[in-house]
Nucleic acid binder design. Sequence first.
DNA 1: CTGAAAGCGCTTACAG
DNA 2: CTGAAAGCGCTTACAG
Lengths: 347, 347
Amino acid sequence: MTASRPGPNLSRIATSLGVSVATVSNALSGKGRVSGQLVERIREHAAELGYVPSQAGRALRTGRSGVLGLVLPDIANPLFPKIAQAIEFAASAVGYGVLIADSRGDVAAQTEAINRLVERGVDGMVIIPRRATRISSAVCPVAIIDTPSTPGNTVAADHWQGGLEIAGHLAGLGHCRVLIIGNNQESNVQNDRAGGIRSGMRPGMHSEALWIDRLEQENGIGCPLGLAEKVRQGFTAFATLSDLQALRALTELQQAGINIPADVSVTGFDDLIWSPVVTPSLTTVRMDMDRIAEIAVSALVDTIKTSSGREGVLVTAAIERVAMQLIVRRSSGPANLAQKTSDIENM
Amino acid sequence: MTASRPGPNLSRIATSLGVSVATVSNALSGKGRVSGQLVERIREHAAELGYVPSQAGRALRTGRSGVLGLVLPDIANPLFPKIAQAIEFAASAVGYGVLIADSRGDVAAQTEAINRLVERGVDGMVIIPRRATRISSAVCPVAIIDTPSTPGNTVAADHWQGGLEIAGHLAGLGHCRVLIIGNNQESNVQNDRAGGIRSGMRPGMHSEALWIDRLEQENGIGCPLGLAEKVRQGFTAFATLSDLQALRALTELQQAGINIPADVSVTGFDDLIWSPVVTPSLTTVRMDMDRIAEIAVSALVDTIKTSSGREGVLVTAAIERVAMQLIVRRSSGPANLAQKTSDIENM
DNA sequence: CTGAAAGCGCTTACAG
DNA sequence: CTGAAAGCGCTTACAG
């Protein structure tokens, strides 16, 4: 015995209409040279019967599954769901399904996740690699979304330019002492953002970096960042490298009785869901996920369509860097000059 | 011409070993009655050649794709990524892939998303329905994750019991006036949570509800919640129905110079990523996503395996309600009695 | 414009 | 224990 699907198939439509399966197939796909009338009749009948083409049959015949894999380091991390959503949207717009593979933070799990996708016969995959992971020999076309500074990258937000935006914004508000707050000193993304901020500083401006990962290594996870002390030292702007850190900084400062933005400014990165909702709302920088996803997916699909068979190709898009957009909200304001003066007196 | 995959297939292994494809298939699947020695040789050779079985061939033959669909209302909403991750984990643990379909908030899109999954030949799906959406006639086994109060539900966190936990916690701290803050009065989940809180109140406690959706309808999106006024009215506990609202309440109160937890307590729901990170860290209630996902997936897979062919079955699990767990952090503390007294004097 | 036929890779009932 | 054969549903090169 052989397994059969419940719904109608091409052959049922064909016999019930007294034509051949080839003609039905051609009529439905619009490829073959079938008379307009017949096409009409066939389409109608297929719709009536609720015909759903079998992906399995098609895949077996064409060697293409119509499915893309999406490899993520950790979908619970608030940045990734947006990417996943954008990828899914872009993929389904061009007729592809998306199979997810979450590596849950583990490097070994990433390799395993990739293998699982290959076994499922994906036509290609989008990989958002774990920090410092190099995707080596792939068995199908692969698009990588990472920082532009990562070699072999396909497309990414221009994190450096995002940093420039922040620096320009803070400069325009008259801030001179900027504390850059990141949570991972090894992250390419965070380093690019920090580099952008630093290189966007105007003469007379000065910055220092605070890496939370290092701080926590010494003082334990969840330790205070000591930001009130930094304010006393004269910092008036806290430029965090992600909205999660912005939130941490914002609430710690508020708890210490420091007013934002009257006393100091706080900025973030990524425009995560809470940014518009907290008080004061967060000034941040947003990446154009839809654009990035669309570029990644279309580059991938182009490669799939041209490459015959399934070879390991690293896909490269024409436009690699997608600009980030500054979103000014209430958490940043003019530098408090009175305070700055008093601080200078203190020094 | 017919498309061929790049890698080796059963037939190549068979001829190169001088045996039949049937034997190779049986050896690799461990099903057939093949001699131990041969099995060994075949497995070895297959591994050497890097054999990856074709899902398409298998699917066509067995009528099973080995893929589950996951329908989400909006993966960018911070609650869903955790579910998605848990589902993917549970599914891949039992050998299934997960195809995502994000309906992006739209009801029509949800139906369309379901259709896309059916077309891709999923063996079953997990649906986290949009508010008030009834999943009607499905064409494959379906598991639904929603509130237990939703009819036809498969498995869910016990939101009502979570509310009880919060109420018990606040009662234990001596709070008498509780403001329940939700953002959607139509949400079954939020109503269950609110109901649990109310029914867990001790004698002498009193609660009031603030629905942000209604407030914003009147005053515009992102309007202040007027919580400082509520504090003046004598509320000492702000029990929000999600951590996002907790964040909103927390920062608004802090901005107004109200100290948490010294002056008032704030609690949330869901233990989202920022809960442990903000100052003060958020007391909240966590659902056991892994458990929920595991129950949903295994119920689904059981149904798939027993149901011959692909029929529309609504899967029901034996254990429907998964308990929520209270996580006490610094945002909640003993009720400030001094303030309460002064408030009573004010009235 | 239409159809008969081959074949994608697999699994399984059956025969030996 | 092993193999020959059928067939899942589709697409496509070819013949008519």
